[in-house]
Amino acid sequence: MTTGSLTVPRRTRFRLPRRQVPVLATLALLLVMYGIGVSQYTAFSNVQVIFNVFIDNGFLLVVAVGMTFVILTGGIDLSVGSVVAMTAMVSADLLQKGLPAALVLVIALLIGPTLGLLMGCAIHFFDIQPFIVTLAGMFFARGMCTFISGSSIPITDGFWTRMSQERIGDPRGNFVSISVLIAFAVVLVAAYVLAYTRLGRNVYAIGGNPQSALLMGLPLGRTRIAVYTISGLCSAIGGILLSFYTLSGAPLIAVGMELDVIAAVVIGGTVLTGGSGYVFGTVLGVLVLGVIQTLITFDGSLNSWWTKIVIGGLLFAFILLQRLIGIRYK
C-alpha cells in the first residue's frame, strides 16, 4: 500500500441503463400490442383509435401522474379513486344547486389536495403506514360521495357540456377532447417538476433511501407531505375530467380505480419501493391499459373481464422484471 498506487476507478460492471430498462420494456410491449391490433383489425390503424384511448383514459392518466409522485417516494395512495368520485360528486351537486361554474371548479379542486395534505401530515407526523392512512382516506371520501347523494346527479351546466363536447381535431376528422389536452399539460408540468426542481429531486432521493436523504439534509417531511398533496390535486383534476366525460357525478363511480392507477404506474416502470421511474413511463403504462381494452373491444367476442386478467398477468410480469433488475444491481 503505497502512495503511488493509482488505480483508475472504473465502474465495476457494465450495466444497462438501469432506470430506463422497465420503461423500454413497456414501450416494446406497447408497440407489440399495437402491432397485433393493426395486423388483426384493419380499422385499428386509424389514428382516432389512439386518440380514443387518450379520450377514454385522460382522467386516469392525470391521477396516475399524481400516484407516480407518491410511489417514487416509496409510498402508496389508495384514496385516489374515492377522491376522484368525491370531486365529481361535489361538482355535480354544487352545479345542481346553481353555483357558478368557476366557483365550483375552485372548490372541487381544493378538496382533493386538502385531503391529501391531511393524509400526508398523518403519515409524516404520526409515522403511520401510508397504506392504512390512505385506506382511511379512501373510505372517508367514498362515504362522503353517498352522503352527498345516494344516486347519480346529472350535470347540465353550460361550461361542463362545452368542455365535454368540444372537439379539437385535424381536417381529416380525427379529434381529441379538451380533457386530453389538460392531461397532457399535467404530464408536462409533472415531468418538469420531477426532473428540474428540488422538490422533484428530493422525491427521488427519499424513494432511494430516506435515511440517507435525511442525513444529507433534505426536507423529508415536507417532501412526503407534498407528494400526497400533489396526488390529491391530481385526483381532483382527474375527478373534474371524469365529470366532463360522464357529465354526471355518481357515488359509485371509479370504485377500484386506485388499483388500475397503481397497475398503470408499475407497468410504466416505476419501482414500487420508490426512487426509480418516470412520468413518461406512466403515460406508457396508461396507454398499455387503454390498448388492452381497445383490443378486447375490437375482438368483440371476449368478455371485458379479460382486460383484468391480462392486466393481472402484465403486472406480475413487470414486478418480476423489477425484482430481477433489482437483484442484478445489488
Binding site: 426542481t197 428540488r198 429531486r201 427521488y204 432511494g208 435515511q211 444529507m216 433534505l218 426512487g275
Partner: peptide, 24 residues
C-alpha cells in the same frame, strides 16, 4: 449515506444544486 439511485453528480450536490429560476 447517499442515494444509490441518483447519479454521482446529484449525490454530491443534492440539496444545494445550482439553480436558475428554481430549475436545477
Amino acid at each position: 449515506n447517499l442515494c444509490t439511485n441518483l447519479s454521482v453528480a446529484e449525490n454530491i450536490f443534492i440539496g444545494r444544486e445550482p439553480r436558475l429560476l428554481g430549475a436545477v
